[in-house]
Design a protein around this nucleic acid. Structure first.
Length: 584
DNA sequence: GCCGTTTTCGGCCCGACTGTTTTCAGTCG
């Protein structure tokens, strides 16, 4: 799977950066490795393809030296440079950097003076008050380290957006209701709708910041208070999520919102551009270097227009070309939730869903959807009542009844058909032909080698009855890595056969992910934003799928279920024998 | 280690907070 390999390479470079940091190497060299890592992480194609074309050094942040290390790592699976560093730096030391508040200097100090080379040893030393015998370390630092380790253990991973957003919204509502607050918004990765979130960042404008912070830390959802200053408060919720609130003056709100939304890489790029124009950007506004006069910052839009570019949606702000696009007036017209006209992947209690088909139809109407496809599981998923051919016929009758009972919504008979290990499908072609729409998904045999998996999926989507590939990489965020697959090859075939790729909106899937969705879009492959709802409430998940698509620069014309129903039918009828891909 | 409509050498975003240090280093975003 391309992006999995890209992730590996990025991790490899990050590890080098960590070790260089522990070594006390040049901060600029360290940053070069981290920037190269980030750049590769957001590539929209498999890095091996880039290497094969000999274009590795064209990747931003990758020069001669890093390119050589990547090539060795990718082709041989190891790196002599890395091995050499690993001999100099005890491997456990990098673990210490994961503790918030412990950076390279402290890690090195702890190791050199106390022999600490693991988080466990660090915890023990802090408990025994050995850390405070060191220069520059006092009892407060000791205590903070213990707290940080405890929090790290209770929530070791980034929080999925699907948990972070529902936690943050009540805070935002409460803060907006404070009489002292002029306006408030989500900020940080939450506002950019990243698939996982570290700390939940909120921003408010008020003439009386201290009062707002005082009230914030008293909110009933607060479990404990980590920090409490005049303009910034940090608390921990009962879910063990950290929420930061910053409060600024109303006149600084635009610049603060821009600044605290990030991403860091996006902001660095903006500042560099500003400098070339004789300007300085910070969280208080844009200032002319010549006389230090503030010339923008009341609104976020003014921050961008002053620098000669259009305002852009937060989901784009990852330094993945959006700044260049904004300067050239080439920003995408991003898909919006209101563009979604239907949901083509919905389960009912005929397989593993919780609700009846009729309940699912009624809930879809309430969501304002114009069509849905019931897509229960196929027969080999016996343990969750996959549909037998008899039950398929019965369900067809039921769907016809529902269509006449609810004329304001179209109900399609779909199926989530299982892709077997050899790439064949659970049903014969005649059975498949009877469905209105077919989504094929892998549900087993995740561990097969990359060539086999790629072949398997390509065979499945080459079947003229298959309209959509469901959750194409199979990952579960924080639980299961994507299976090994050459997504680029799959997408090439999909663009030839006219098979759409799903962006599955389940918050722990978000599969395709943002950068993969962008690759699909760039290759002219149609996308489908599906809820994969297993109960009536889960239609709400479409919001996360739409966010993922937006982060992938996806526009309405790239999305199958943004089509009106009649156009969808036309698209579906055109697959056989080979559907022509729509122009991207 | 990377990069260049200021540069192939000399830069590399910038400010806040925290703890401990009495003037600043380390860490973070």
């Amino acid at each position: 799977m391309p992006t999995a390999r890209n992730t590996q390479v990025a991790e490899f470079l990050e590890n080098i950066a960590d070790m260089l940091e522990l070594k006390g190497d040049s901060p600029f060299r360290i940053r070069a490795y981290r920037e190269a890592a980030r750049s590769i992480e957001s590539l929209t194609e498999d890095i091996t393809n880039v290497i094969e074309r000999g274009e590795l050094q064209e990747v931003r942040g990758v020069g001669e030296s890093i390119a050589a290390k990547i090539e060795e790592f990718v082709t041989s699976g190891h790196s002599s440079y890395y091995d050499q560093l690993a001999e100099e730096i005890r491997p456990g030391l990098a673990e210490l950097l994961r503790v918030p508040g412990v950076g390279a200097k402290k890690a090195r100090l702890f190791y050199e003076k106390l022999g600490i080379d693991s988080v466990d040893k660090l915890e023990q030393a802090a408990r025994e008050h050995q850390l405070s015998t060191l220069p520059g370390i006092g009892p407060k630092t000791e205590e903070n380290i213990l707290d940080a380790i405890e929090r790290m253990r209770s929530r070791s991973e980034r929080t999925p957006l699907g948990l972070a957003l529902p936690t943050a919204l009540p805070f935002l509502e409460s803060i907006r209701a404070f009489p002292e607050v002029v306006t408030a918004d989500l900020a940080g990765s939450l506002r950019r709708m990243r698939e996982t979130i570290g700390d939940l960042d909120l921003l408010a404008a008020s003439e009386n910041p201290a009062m707002v912070i005082d009230k914030f830390i008293e909110l009933p959802m607060v479990k404990s208070v980590l920090g409490h200053g005049p303009t910034k408060g940090t608390i921990v919720t009962r879910e063990n999520l950290q929420v930061d609130l910053r409060v600024v003056k109303p006149s600084e709100y635009g610049s603060a919102l821009q600044y605290f939304t990030g991403s860091k890489a996006h902001n660095i790029k903006l500042r560099t551009i500003a400098e070339n124009q004789g300007l300085k950007v910070n969280e208080y506004g844009i200032f002319r270097l010549s006389d230090n006069k503030r010339i923008a910052g009341d609104t976020e839009e003014s921050m961008y227009t002053t620098l000669g570019m259009k305002w852009m949606e937060p989901e784009l702000r990852e330094d993945r070309g959006e700044i260049e696009a904004a300067m050239g007036n080439r920003l995408p017209k991003l898909l919006q939730r209101s563009d979604i006209k239907g949901d083509l992947h919905v389960h009912s209690n005929w397989s593993d869903g919780a609700d009846t088909p009729e309940d699912m139809v009624k809930a879809a109407r309430q969501m304002g959807l114009r069509y849905i496809a019931l897509a229960d599981h196929s027969v080999s998923m016996g343990f969750i009542h996959g549909l037998t051919t008899d039950r398929i016929r019965e369900q067809r009758e039921l769907i016809e009844e529902l269509n006449s009972k609810y004329p304001d919504i179209h109900v399609l008979q779909g199926i989530e058909v299982n892709i077997r290990a050899d790439g064949s499908l659970d049903y014969d072609d005649e059975v498949l032909a009877a469905f209105d729409i077919v989504t094929a998904s892998v549900h087993s045999g995740f561990g097969m080698p990359v060539e086999k998996m790629t072949e398997r999926v390509i065979r499945a989507i080459s079947n003229p009855h298959v309209d959509i590939l469901g959750h194409p990489t199979g990952r579960i965020i924080n639980k299961r890595e994507p299976y090994q697959i050459e997504l680029y090859e799959v997408l090439k075939v999909a663009s030839e056969t006219g098979t759409a790729m799903e962006i599955n909106s389940q918050p722990d899937r978000l599969d395709l992910k943002d950068t993969d969705a962008r690759m699909a879009r760039d290759m002219g492959v149609m996308l489908v934003i599906d809820s994969d709802a297993h109960s009536t409430e889960q239609y709400q998940y479409l919001d996360y799928g739409v966010a993922t698509a937006r982060r992938g620069w996806v526009e309405p014309e790239n999305v199958l279920n943004a089509l009106p129903f009649e156009d969808l039918l036309r698209w579906l009828s055109s697959k056989s024998p080979v559907r022509k891909p729509r122009a991207a």
